[in-house]
Design a protein around this nucleic acid. Structure first.
Lengths: 163, 163
DNA sequence: CCAAATTGTTTTAAGCCTAAAATGTTTTCC
DNA sequence: GGAAAACATTTTAGGCTTAAAACAATTTGG
């Protein structure tokens, strides 16, 4: 009796460590995100979601569909609709209906959009480097590895719930 | 010539690794946060910010001021005002003006609020455990350590900007 | 004591975000 | 071919979030 299997099913497990880990992960992200948001606003008067959307498009010279963007950014479709609307309005994005599938909207950075993004991205990269400055290259590698494992674990758990 | 010091100041540094690390950190957090948000809504029809606020208050039986809450949750003051308004409205929170300082609002969980939070928190803990299930205890310890280092580094960088 | 600075909160204006329902388009498959 | 399913996007309703300004109360320093 009281073998590990019995124990596992009958004793309420202690998950305090995982909870603390989650809170710490959230704290780090919130801290860095807030810092980046503030610097983007101060230096370039741009919001973080706008910057993130432009970053996605900068990596896709041939443009992306709204669905692609919403999957990559992990936000809802409706969210992207509004974000794109404002960025088209300000002249940073070009949007056109696909020739082959009239459901699909393809968006691209305009010349202005690309130029502004490149300017911001270069500075953004130095901010990130500064925020992580106390981590050694080994720390960075190790964090990358552990976060990859975390991501896989969370995706598996999400798939279990919603197969 | 071309000694490491010269190189460090004249060559544009490569910060691609830190950038990738930041994106991965953000992905993990977004993934888990979205999962938790969805489960809270499905199971308890409650939003994540409401849950987070109640979690803070559960740890403070004597109540907290709005400022305390906003610092702990790392959100703006105005944000807390609205959140608290809705939670008072729904009977989960009790709010009163401090006797000794009439600027200060002290909020507490009501009996209902505490009961509902405990019920949700217990299930929430198992979700988190499941989301991190593939991490070994050693992984968890190592992540805790590296994230602590990350937090300290980011705080230092933030303090450099805004002393 | 009292003006000035500080502190705690709310208000304002704008934008972000989600889930769910609605709309229009294409694909599937009988 | 045509109904049904699937897909891409938009709309809707409501809540979250921020920065900045406004307001109220307390503390500080002459």
């Amino acid at each position: 009796m009281l073998d590990s299997e019995t124990k596992a099913t009958e004793t309420p497990e202690d998950h305090a460590d995982e909870l603390r880990l989650w809170l710490r992960l959230l704290t780090c992200t919130t801290l860095i995100e807030g810092e980046v948001r503030g610097r983007l606003r101060e230096r370039f008067d741009v919001t973080l979601p706008r910057f993130d959307l432009m970053a996605q498009l900068d990596k896709a010279p041939d443009g992306m569909t709204l669905s692609d963007v919403s999957k990559r950014m992990m936000v809802s479709n409706g969210n992207v609709t509004g974000l794109v609307e404002r960025l088209v309005e300000s002249g940073h994005l070009d949007r056109r209906t696909s020739e082959t599938d009239r459901r699909v909207q393809v968006i691209r950075l305009t010349k202005l959009g690309r130029a502004e993004f490149r300017r911001m991205a270069s500075e953004h990269e130095t901010w990130i480097a500064d925020l992580f400055a106390d981590l050694t290259p080994k720390d960075v590698r190790e964090l990358m590895r552990l976060l990859a494992k975390t991501k896989a674990s969370a995706q598996k758990s999400a798939a279990r719930r919603r197969p």
